[in-house]
Design a binder for these strands. Sequence first.
DNA 1: CCAAAAGTGTTACAAGTACACCCATGT
DNA 2: ACATGGGTGTACTTGTAACACTTTTGG
Lengths: 257, 257
Amino acid sequence: MVEFKSVNEFRLKGGKYFMPCISIDCVIFGFHAGQLKVLLLTIANYSSCGLPAGFIYKEEHIDASAKRILLERTGLSDIFLQQFYIFGDPKRCDENITKAVFEKAGITAPADNWLLQRFLTIGYYALVDFEKVNAKPDYFSETCEWYDIDNLPPLAMDHAQIVQKALLTLRTHLRYEPVGYNLLPAKFTMPELQSLYETILGQKLDRRNFQRKMLSYGILKKLKEQRKGVAHKAPYLYSFDLRKYHKALEEGFQSAW
Amino acid sequence: MVEFKSVNEFRLKGGKYFMPCISIDCVIFGFHAGQLKVLLLTIANYSSCGLPAGFIYKEEHIDASAKRILLERTGLSDIFLQQFYIFGDPKRCDENITKAVFEKAGITAPADNWLLQRFLTIGYYALVDFEKVNAKPDYFSETCEWYDIDNLPPLAMDHAQIVQKALLTLRTHLRYEPVGYNLLPAKFTMPELQSLYETILGQKLDRRNFQRKMLSYGILKKLKEQRKGVAHKAPYLYSFDLRKYHKALEEGFQSAW
DNA sequence: CCAAAAGTGTTACAAGTACACCCATGT
DNA sequence: ACATGGGTGTACTTGTAACACTTTTGG
């Protein structure tokens, strides 16, 4: 792994260390205050936001690259991360973004710079605990912040499409595998879990049926504790039974046919 | 699009036309005589088989590349084709294959040749009508032939893993979307369709339940004709109702939650 | 006339959906 | 005391699974 001291050094030496023409874009989902959120960067001199992205070291597994990018942006490791699509439209790239970054850094780069080529990008999506994230911008960006998924700012290039595809993948995923461990704190209530599901799916679910279905998967442990200090009846706390959770992750929930 | 006259020309000029370090591997499924089959290439001077593969022109959409590769190998266009995964282990590559090809062509290539770099590969899988395929080998191979999926020869690099992942994807796909139009001739019998499903899923299904379920999707048209010349009772022929078939492809079959 | 494959229908069980009542707590 | 949210149970509907008999045809 290499440390670059500036955008300019990145521009000059990056081509030596990274695979050419391929990047990784991460759609990092978090959940807070009943809202599904995505982590986005803002770019100096540029009007639209972008996804946390990065490149692949020449000797690095692509999953490791994604993990590294995630760690750099959030400070977190060991979280749910999965590739979901590769975006390969030749028109997807917009060199104006890179040029804006260069301009801001006072650089004039020749057109054959490695950063100004056509890039394919591998989409990864991550599920993280909102509370634990310590968001940091990268070389190219000014801020790194959470945005509500249904109130996103304008996104650069095809990043809106990438977020959309990630969300669709997450929704599908949700139906056949457990989700939640990575998005919620260690202890949570059933209504909180339900709210997460409703947010991801974008629809209301029946309280009682939801609870029954969730419990039927056998991946939850009901704790003796109850959430305190809230209005109305105190809800029970649950935690995931990690052994069973991971087993379910591997095997999936359903098995039609 | 560029025509290369020899492996050597490909080696020398390919780097100018193709994106670096990314290839496409196609898992082409066909169905014949109750067997699910995959199209594989054999390489001169080399002991194991490989998947039909190719590269991405610098101005080309990756889906178009996959389509082109498929056309070149099978003579078919307008067939079901879908990317399913990108394989990015830095150790996945084996330059010995390329070297074997070079050797066979009487070439000694410098180590920095574009073909000898680390490659990521995008996996696409295709479903084709076995009868219509006119298989042709490519620059690098000697033969292009069908192999039974459960009796595959040794495969080069990570191609066995790629086939496995494609099959898993196809199986999942089968549960939620219609499959069959691309793998079967225009007219087919219900037992033939069932056999296809059983083969892909690797398990026996109940005749009566299968038929009911299939018909319930409303994507089949029962024809007045029956298959003739077969032993025993003549089965009815069916065809797909393409309008409804494509609608189902878009919407999917199920909608849990 | 019989073996083998194809057409068709019924019943039982599991899963999903819809819905109602009681309980606990903070205001 | 009451409004609000949380805990729990039951009937209905739908889908899946298991299973048997009749029909046709080639040998």
